[in-house]
Design a protein around this nucleic acid. Structure first.
Lengths: 138, 138
DNA sequence: AGTCTATGTTGGTCAAGCCCACGATTAATC
DNA sequence: GATTAATCGTGGGCTTGACCAACATAGACT
């Protein structure tokens, strides 16, 4: 079992275990982080835009935003210039939550890649980036 | 978004998409392949052993073996030396199915890693192997 | 004997990803 | 300007993969 696909999926499973554990400890999950990250990086946006930026399906964006809104981390307001859209904004609590999640993520990075030197981590990143770019032609 | 964790999970998602598509075209899914592979590599085994070898939970092994048995790809027979156990055996059709799945998997490998040279593929494999070994101390 | 562990099985939960359909609204085309 | 097409938010459902709990049966160990 040394096939690349196997290794990648095993490594991903490992990363996933560490991540979901770390996120769960902060009452969150992957979708929450991805949405908050997109909002922090690009500012308020409509739900459809968020879906495109994060790669999350529209319908799943709805559910995740409901969760985030229930926790007071984001707010929806109608877009006056297009009444189909909601403008999604991060609250102060949301920003705070994002920072905590980001720290947790950094910890998981270190944990996961502990056996690799900085140069090797760069190598890994470069290889994966090229693989991804090939399948995701912008 | 150039964090290793993100890249790994995105690459895994891509691999997963390609794989499940290829497997679905042969009326199978990941668990089926993993179980058949373990049986082909190590020979007949009990369900608990299969679970340990593939990393699949006992209860999921049951369900996947049911699927495989429905398709006539494996057979269960009681172990005379331990009446708790079933001995799982691959049928001729199961071997044939495994070969088809294995070919499909090889195709996905090539597809996924198309942008990398053979040396780079080895590099990637080596890096991931070390990451995994660190978290899965045999 | 009795206790502890292993096995197969059923059942349930969760996260992630994906698709479909609907009503409402805006954009595009005739 | 009226009709068709596309977009948006929303709800619903489905599949895979991964996990966990419980239980009856069967072995193992003391």
């Amino acid at each position: 079992m040394e096939l690349p696909t196997w290794l990648i999926s095993q490594t991903s499973a490992q990363a996933h275990r560490l991540l979901s554990e770390a996120f769960a400890a902060i009452d969150s999950r992957g979708y929450h982080y991805r949405l908050l990250a997109a909002l922090e990086e690009f500012g308020p946006a409509s739900q459809a835009t968020l879906g495109r930026r994060t790669g999350i399906d529209r319908s799943d964006v709805v559910a995740a935003l409901n969760d985030l809104a229930d926790r007071g981390l984001i707010e929806r307001s109608p877009d006056p210039s297009d009444r189909r859209r909601n403008i999604v904004t991060v609250t102060a609590a949301g920003s705070e939550r994002f920072r905590r999640l980001d720290k947790a993520l950094a910890g998981v990075q270190d944990d996961l890649l502990a056996p690799l030197s900085p140069a090797e981590r760069d190598q890994l990143v470069a290889l994966l980036t090229r693989v991804l770019a090939h399948h995701n032609p912008e």
